[in-house]
Amino acid sequence: MGVGAFFTSKLDEAIGWARKYSIFQYPFVTACCGMEYMATACSHYDVDRFGAGLPRFSPRQADVLFVVGTISHKMAPVLKRIYDQMTEPKWVVAFGVCTCTGGFYDNYATVQGIDTIIPVDVYIPGCPPRPESVLDGLMKLQDRIAAQTQRY
């Protein structure tokens, strides 16, 4: 291994470590999962312990898109536009079964999983997911962020 390769591999690690503790999320809350998201975000479960305590209400300032709640076909273009507005690097969390697969809304109005619209990094199942599973998903996302190879 040359000196340059050693240097960039260590720089990747350092950047990954820094990024995983400064997650600025954009909560795209459409349905009842939002209550569980709020419970997780507040002091009992406290996502701030994982450096994800500051939601940004503009997608242009956010790193992680939290899609929380049922997405209808009519909402789908809006979600796609929000995702497109986020700057790289960006990640997406599907929060709850409705965003993962459509859940029990197997009907004419509901998108059957947001991964038909945008790429998803972490799926958190549950209807709604317990705060513990949200935190588990958040830590899985942190692992993913930390392990990500950077493109310079």
Binding site: A76, P77, V78, R81, D106, Y108, Q112
Partner: peptide
């Protein structure tokens, strides 16, 4: 027209693009 009784409940509609 989705509330017609002969509309298949699991029909998938084409996704629509950004506005």
């Amino acid at each position: 027209h989705p509330l017609r009784k002969d509309y298949p409940i699991n029909r998938r509609q084409p996704l629509i693009g950004p506005p």
